[in-house]
Write a protein that binds this DNA or RNA. Structure first.
Length: 511
RNA sequence: GGUCCCAUCGUCUAGGGGCCUAGGACACCACCCUCUCAAGGUGGAGACACGGGUUCGAAUCCCGUUGGGACUACCA
């Protein structure tokens, strides 16, 4: 009794492959959605087909104009363009679902007229009560179809009582097999395919109806979406067939989960694409990482440009099991792309991030500093943090730096300030040779000689290369910091009063 | 509870009966490099969930168990 699978027969005709990304504009584009969009886009581009962006805003209460803008911005940032959709139009619009409302409602009314749908007068309260009862009796909950065969007089009676009604689609009562490019065939038992609401009692269409109608109207040949929508597929396919349309070919993507294998949530930091952009992740890293979360080309290729992904993308190689989002790997990959990026681009990115934080930097200095931080930053925000000391004079040394600036460092620091004063071309080479001389005269290891100076200059024990940093900072500011540190150290190493431990951790093993 | 989906190192994955003493990448450890931190280099530890089959031969095929997850809305 089962229908034939929704087979590869699908309606790919002279229009070629057509697929879409259809988000609900209720917030930000998060990484799961971004990956769905990416795969859909890759599939379309690989097949020289058409990629459509459709905004599913049937739930007017949760949809906002701002969310639509963020969605578009995030998609563009990732490099995913659409051939049809908001802003660009196309032959099968409108691409904002709410603008097709009348047409969608008309189709529901057509189903009503054909007997494929019926009015259901059950109230949400009644439905909820029955659901709870069924559950408590250990039965399978779900609409029992009681309004399916109401007589005209019964309907009239409900109407007289002032009851409103929702419209339900009448399922055929047989099993339905759905074909999925990634998962093969899945059969849903008739008993679990309950009649579902297509028009709410306020007359608005539900997602199930709207998406199905839109997919038919927009001539979609392939629908690539998350597995969470797999159970809705038999219902949508049934409606499409009732419409006399060939359903598209479906591909349900595995979920992206968090490090704990639970659904991705904010607990693990940002999940919004926009937030990654703000922190200074590069779109090429984002797209490369997301592309490999659930898809692979071969055993070893790790880096892909969008073009290379288009070339190799294949739905048949998409994984069936959920993938855990790993922020560390993303950061590593971002570092890789940062190292590949031009200094100019990084400089302007760092300046941008600084601007967004309301932190004033000198773009010229940033440009010169980029080579110093390029290979040690994994995000633009990290790079900016490493350059902070160049733009802030009232540095607050961190705890480790303070310990490095104890009383016993005063001499070294004062000596450095004095000797450096006569360095004329203020170059990192000259700075280095001067400091090296001091180090040798003091009989110190590099670490013991330079770490206090680093602490004085940058306020931290971890920084970009010291000599280059000092060159960039400039002679006067460098000397001022050394003198201030020397004075502070002599004054007793601050509150601690302690003899700053020679942070010579490790030290020569044999004493 | 019911239906459905999924199951290789901690993580992302390669693998589609013999090429697997299971390969790569992130993370981790050690060493090298080194003014700190990175980057880079070298090496190391680390997985086929379990149990039955099928087969000369199973990570690969089948069944079951276990474990995860999705759905079960007048949300999408």
């Amino acid at each position: 009794m089962a229908d034939g699978p929704v087979g590869p027969g699908a309606n790919v005709d002279e229009t070629g492959v057509r697929c879409r990304f259809a988000p609900a504009p209720t917030g930000y584009l998060h990484v799961g959605g971004a990956r769905t969009a990416l795969y859909s886009w890759l599939f379309a581009r690989h097949n020289r087909g058409t990629f459509v962006l459709r905004v599913e805003d049937t739930d007017q209460r949760r949809s906002t104009e701002e969310a639509i803008d963020i969605l578009k911005r995030s998609l563009r940032w990732l490099g995913l363009d659409w051939d049809e959709g908001p802003d660009v139009g196309g032959p099968y619009g409108p691409y904002i679902q709410s603008e097709r409302m009348k047409g969608i409602v008309a189709i529901a009314e057509g189903f009503l007229a054909d007997g494929r749908a019926y009015r259901c007068y059950c109230t949400p309260g009644e439905l909820e009560d029955r659901r709870r009862d069924a559950l408590s009796r250990g039965e399978t909950p779900g609409y029992d179809g009681r309004c399916r065969h109401l007589t005209d007089t019964e309907r009239a009676e409900f109407g007289r009582q002032g009851r409103s009604f929702a419209v339900r689609f009448a399922m055929p009562g047989h099993d339905i097999t759905v074909h999925d490019v990634i998962r093969g065939d899945t059969t849903f038992p008739a008993d679990d395919l309950k009649d579902f609401v297509i028009l709410r009692s306020d007359g608005s269409p539900t997602y199930l109806l709207a998406a199905a109608v839109d997919d038919v109207a927009m001539r979609m040949t392939h629908v690539i979406r998350g597995v969470d929508l797999l159970p809705s597929t038999p219902r949508q396919v049934e409606m499409m067939q009732a419409l006399g349309a060939d359903p598209p070919l479906y591909a349900h993507l595995p979920l992206i989960v968090g490090p704990d294998h639970q659904p991705l949530s904010k607990r693990f930091g940002s999940v919004a694409v926009e937030a990654f952009r703000e922190q200074g992740y590069l779109p090429e890293a984002m797209v490369n990482y997301l592309g490999l979360l659930g898809w692979s080309f071969d055993a070893t290729t790790t880096f892909f440009t969008l073009q290379e992904m288009i070339e190799h993308f294949d739905l048949a190689r998409v994984s069936k099991s959920p993938a855990a989002f790993d922020p560390q790997k993303l950061a590593w990959m971002n570092g890789h792309y940062i190292r590949e990026a031009s200094d100019e681009r990084l400089a302007s990115l760092i300046t941008e991030v600084a601007d967004e934080e309301g932190f004033r930097v000198d773009p010229a200095v940033v440009t010169e500093a980029v080579p110093l931080v390029k290979e040690r930053m994994r995000t633009v925000a990290e790079g900016l943090a490493m350059l902070r000391f160049l733009f802030v004079d009232d540095l607050e040394p961190d705890e480790k730096a303070r310990k490095m600036l104890g009383p016993d460092r005063a001499g070294l620091l004062r000596e450095a300030a004095e000797r450096l004063r006569s360095v004329d071309p203020w170059t990192h080479e000259a700075i280095q040779s001067t400091l090296t001389e001091i180090k040798e005269e003091f009989g110190l290891s590099s670490k013991n000689a330079f770490q206090p100076i680093r602490a004085a200059i940058t306020g931290a024990l971890v920084s970009p290369p010291l000599f280059e940093s000092m060159e960039l900072l400039g002679k006067e500011r460098s000397l001022a910091r050394l003198e201030a540190a020397a004075a502070g150290a002599a004054a007793g190493g601050l509150d601690q009063g302690s003899k700053s431990e020679i942070d010579d951790e490790g030290g020569p093993p044999a004493g």
